[in-house]
Design a binder for these strands. Sequence first.
RNA 1: GUGAGCGUAGCUCAGCUGGUUAGAGCGCCGGUCUGUGGCACCGGAGGCCGGGGGUUCGAAUCACCUCGUUCACCCCA
Length: 422
Amino acid sequence: MDKRTAPRGTFDILPTDSNRWLALERAVDELCARFGYGEIRTPIFESTDVFVRTIGEGTDIVDKEMYTFTDRGGRSMTLRPEFTAPTARAALEHNLLQNLPLKVYYRGPIFRYERPQKGRYRQSHQWGAECFGVAGPQADAEIIALGMELIRRETLADVELGINSMGCDVCRPAYREAVVAHLKDNATTLSENSRERLSRNPLRVLDSKDPSDRAVIATAPRVDSYLCDACREHFTAVRALLASMGITPTVDPKIVRGLDYYTRTVFEMSAGGLGTQNALCGGGRYDGLIAAMGGPATPAVGLAMGMERLLMAAGPRRAESLNGRPRTEVAFVALDEPSARSLVPILHAFRRAGISADMDYTLRKVDKQIRAAGQQGARVAVILGNDELARGEATVQDLTTRERQRVKLIELEHDVKERLAR
RNA sequence: GUGAGCGUAGCUCAGCUGGUUAGAGCGCCGGUCUGUGGCACCGGAGGCCGGGGGUUCGAAUCACCUCGUUCACCCCA
């Protein structure tokens, strides 16, 4: 077929659906503001190394999922596959970290070159929040609470919150070594994939769903027995704070997260009904990232949530059946060309007065026009034909009661406003 | 990147083991009602049957290739 289609793994959001997106975006804006986070907008593409250096080689994102291209100046650029690295880059570039704590949120499209399936696209949308400069567990708890609250407001689905601690620079190396040793002892039973990962990113083997891997993982050393006192205390405190807000996470040692920059707290929120891609939200603490990017040592926590998946988990909302057009309060109906001409300035005056009003310029039959007006949720129709025009009047019909009345054009706006106020 | 299922009107789908001009429901447009809505009845527009070459007298239908899509693996939002 020669018909043009949206690129693979992308989709159009049509007027019939965009209402839901708009509502979700407003909810995100409103909730983040309530939690004290200000919006940050970064470019949709960055220098490739912004992602490679932060997300880390050996991760799927960097190794095979990035939309990378060379610009006309010969620079390597990449469409953002996530928001944390660009946000950190922007914070550093504009010296935002001199005034801590810094709390920012974002929303928008991200790009990953993957085979599409349920809940996974090449262009998808995320919102998320980052809190820089707070080492204490309150920040972890706040970020998690923010995510849970947004989900609670938007969906009725049961959401599971899994949480884990990955330790810090002090304790993670020992744990990592123990894991590597264990995996090497069992290397023969590991999947090919995991064996390869053993040298590059061993902790992620713990995440594997491969059955034979699972057996090895089950007997692997657990993080909690390797955490240093500070990390242990932090982890306990985060959970206690969550509990005080009525949030009870499940401790899940399998959560290690795919990206290199996480330290201490990592978490995931998942929901049913999403197929196998059931992660709604993921995040954690990344105390080392800013320093690794050349900035001042700055603790940070963040989360990212997939908006498509959130909408999926929320299920279909009641259809507004307005054909994807915004609700019109007042419909202007012209019966002929002269009437239409006289209605234009009146329509404009209504709009300037803050009333959503529309007119069917096709001048089709009255009954069709009125029917369409009703479908768009109009409460009042203002009808004008040569009869009315000659007398300087309009017929005003209340579309709920069907009652009709002649009104002087001079009093029209006042009359209609009164009707709408009822 | 791998595997499986599916591609017929705007949407949801019929079209049996290949047989002339391709169907329904919903939606859309129009009429019955020279100027007044949601009902009813009648009519109409809209399809390179995803694309390509094959087999055949003949393909929407069969085999192959390709593209797209869906789901799963991998991994993640």
